[in-house]
Computed example of a mutant assay.
Amino acid sequence: MRREYIRSALLISCSMAIGVVGWSGYVTLLPVALAFPVLWSIARTRMIAALVSAGYFLAASRGLPQGVAAFYSSDFWPGFLFWLCASLSFVAVHTVLWTGTAGIRSFRYLLAAVIMAIPPFGITGWAHPVTAAGVLFPGWGWWGLGLMTVGLAGLVTRIWPAVAIALTGFWLWSAAIWTDPKLPEAWHGVDLELGVSLGRDTGLQRQRDMIATVRRAAGKGARFVVLPESALGFWTPTVERLWTGALADGDATVIAGAVVIDADGYDNVLVAIDRNGSRILYSERMPVPGSMWQPWRSWFGESGGARADFFANPIASIGASQAAPLICYEQLIVWPVLQSMLHDPDAILAIGNGWWTEGTSIVAIQRAATTAWAKLFAKPLVIAFNT
């Protein structure tokens, strides 16, 4: 009995360590998360499988309580409760589908992986081990994703040591030749350090500062300049006229985050602006649940909150090329990027406004995950974040 207790405690402790290290924000450490399926499979009871799942997920998403507290300017407890609630879907899926029968375990785990990759459970499908495919199989595209899927299935069978050795070999090979994704030619992503004021300071001086930033980038040869999420604040006719007028004497195209409001709520969008005018380039498919996306409001006849377009506009046409936009939260989950890759875009655009994540690894994790996907599909990557 004592031996079983120690074994279970070790499994749970290891799952937590895996969550911390694998999701530390370093892209080449993402394959550490592949140890989670092994621990899940060797759990001897459903309860231990549930605790292993909880330990992994809570450790991987450990920055959430502090981030939520900063976002709402509240104390630690609301963020802590939200952190626990967010883990429920991951833990529930892996607990229900756990089995002690070796013959069907790989099917059960793959089913859990698929469920956590697509809505509705995929809405909180953070820390998905399949994200490591880009580190193990850079440039392999859908074949690499397929091999990763086979590898995940193998890690929950009795031959998992052999599968783990093979995957480790790919990991070491990839780490030895690793290079970051390329930036598309004539593109420039602008990182800002404006904190909470970005998107909230909508004064004329802030807009002029943004325009000056774009002009500096264009002066260095950038044809397309990408600004972070919420960089333009509320998208109004006045703001549109200001920007199109500022760009009238140049060839640069600005792609920037903004918010479009109507009577029922708002859309978190990307806007493309050049000397000929502007257009809404992309509407966020999955805003942050809770703080932005609040579907329960409609149940009580209320309006407000960001709209989730789920499977809409997976790619955006920019000039003669197509890009896969990912706004903030979409970089942490699986289906938006895979849906976009089905259309074989020319590049990935990743923008965010992470002022509220100060002191956490959330932005680093977003960057690491997006980098891994870009490497898997051999796509150039443009990143623009505000911190």
Score class of each variant (00 low, 15 high):
Cys85His: 08
Thr213Val: 14
Asp344Tyr: 00
Thr371Pro: 03
Asp264Arg: 12
Leu34Ala: 15
Glu330Asp: 06
Gly63Ala: 05
Trp235Ala: 12
Val271Ala: 10
Pro181Val: 09
Lys379Ile: 10
Asn353Pro: 00
Pro287Val: 04
Lys220Val: 12
Ala86Leu: 10
Gln207Pro: 01
Thr213Met: 10
Ala350Gln: 02
Ser361Lys: 07
Ile159Trp: 13
Ala132Asp: 10
Asp344Ala: 14
Asp262Glu: 08
Gly169Ile: 09
Ser74Ile: 00
Arg367Glu: 14
Gly125Trp: 09
Leu232Arg: 01
His188Arg: 13
Lys220Asp: 13
Trp83Phe: 11
Trp187Leu: 07
Gly25Glu: 12
Thr95Met: 01
Gly79Glu: 07
Asn313Ala: 15
Arg216Gly: 13
Ala117Ile: 12
Arg208Thr: 07
Trp296Asn: 04
Ser278Ala: 15
Glu240Pro: 02
Ile18Tyr: 02
Leu147His: 00
Pro228Asp: 03
Lys375His: 05
Met292Glu: 15
Thr238Cys: 08
Gly221His: 09
Ser8Pro: 13
Leu381Ala: 07
Phe36Leu: 12
Arg215Ser: 00
Asn276Gln: 15
Gly169Trp: 04
Leu11Met: 06
Ser41Cys: 02
Leu147Arg: 03
Trp355Ile: 01
Leu381Met: 08
Lys182Ile: 07
Asn313Phe: 06
Pro120Cys: 09
Leu81Ala: 08
Ile362Tyr: 09
Phe300Val: 08
Phe36Thr: 05
Val226Ile: 08
Ala324Tyr: 04
Gly122Asn: 02
Ser361Asp: 13
Leu147Ile: 01
Leu247Cys: 12
Asp267Cys: 03
Ala176Ile: 01
Thr360Met: 00
Trp77Asp: 01
Ile123Met: 14
Ala127His: 11
Phe71Asp: 08
Trp77Met: 11
Ala43Leu: 03
Trp293Asn: 05
Ala384Asp: 06
Thr371Trp: 09
Ala113Met: 11
Ser291His: 11
Phe82Ser: 10
Leu270Glu: 10
Asn276Val: 07
Asn313Cys: 07
Ile273Met: 11
Phe121Pro: 10
Ala33Cys: 14
Gly25Ile: 10
Ile6Asn: 02
Thr357Phe: 00
Pro380Lys: 04
Ile315Gly: 10
Asp262Pro: 10
Phe90Asn: 13
Ile255Pro: 05
Leu232Trp: 06
Pro295Lys: 14
Thr236Ile: 07
Ala323Val: 14
Ala153Met: 06
Val269Glu: 12
Trp160Ala: 12
Phe300Trp: 11
Gln294Ile: 08
Lys379Val: 05
Ser41Phe: 04
Arg215Cys: 00
